[in-house]
Design a protein around this nucleic acid. Sequence first.
DNA 1: TCTGGGGTCCTAGGACCC
DNA 2: TCTGGGGTCCTAGGACCC
Length: 393
Amino acid sequence: MSRGGVSTPILHVDMDAFYASVALRERPDLVDQPVVVGGSGRGVVLAANYVARRHGLRSALPMTRARRMCPQVVVLEPDYALFTAVSASVMETFREVTPIVEAMSLDEAFLDVRGSTRRLGDPPDIAERLRSTIHDEQGITCSVGVAATVSVAKLASRRAKPDGVIVVPPAEVTSFLHPLDVGELYGVGEKTQALLHRFGLMTVGDVAHTPLRTLQRAVGAHLGRELHHLAWGTDRSDLAPSAGPHEPDKSMGANETFARDTDDRDFIVRELLRLSARVGGRMRSAGVAGRTITLTVRFADFTTITRSRTLSEATDVTVEIHRAVTRLYDALGLQRARLRLVGVRVEGLVPRSSVQRQLVLGEPEHGWAEADRAVDRATRRFGAAAVRPASLV
DNA sequence: TCTGGGGTCCTAGGACCC
DNA sequence: TCTGGGGTCCTAGGACCC
């Protein structure tokens, strides 16, 4: 350890099979059985415990396939309110270690512990201490990667799973990274992995030793540069603390996969209203409005298209969102095409207070914003189920 | 009766403006 | 009258992440 600062100040903490672990706290009788958290019907596996993983079950696997692969699997419904509450407690534990916490999702975060070593010891000690605190307080396990940069810490935590710690000192970064498959790198998914493999780049070491220009020709200027850094472990080590009022969302949306494919326009337009109401309600409670409205349509064969329209001024009004997506839908001119999903998204969000509504005299629109506020008030008092547009009743 | 839902970012072409 | 060079906005698609 060098004097004047630790060499591996970044911790990546990742809960092990988070949703499944939390769900199993409520059902300790099931811990030795294969358990997944997931929806029913056309859903996918959201989390699989380690017993289920021995049967090949993984996140994102279609539930139908999961049941076929492991008929005895126990499926638990997700309880997002519970997951969110546990996550908040865990994040609180992180902030007792350091104020510099960058949350990536409900179940993982980066911590910069540079300022905590005098009080709490070296980063590996801090990692172990965190793990035992979380285990004692929450009854779930986590894994921690400790390194000098964000991406190396993240890869280390993955390697540490389940229930472990891996420290990668600077001198060992390349020997740790270079044997890994390119698909392990952050930002390399299925498509880019296949592309890189086709170029003969199988490992992170292969990527590291490819000239930058060649890499950029293969995957584009931006990703090429990014991969070069990741392959040498020279990515960022500065975190963007997500405590307190963090970055506002840039878009909000909702989509729904139907229980069965449909070409029924009336049904689809009603679904668009539900989704518009959900998005509009969330926008209003967040105090934002947006100008660009996007419709997503996924056909039965899974091909997916989007159509968007930018309005002259930002809105958070359910009826206006719904009208925009309905127009986009009708403009598609679909005849008999069966749809499996529709989605509504509003982009370019700005604080509602910054939007100057032009009040056109006698404009019939006028009343809709007030109607939304009434719906929002009623929803807060009686719940979402009690308040919905007449055409949805 | 394979393939969720909520997001972010990048690319690329065309329009439009200076 | 033989061809610029940005910069910004809009649209569509695609890849990726958790």
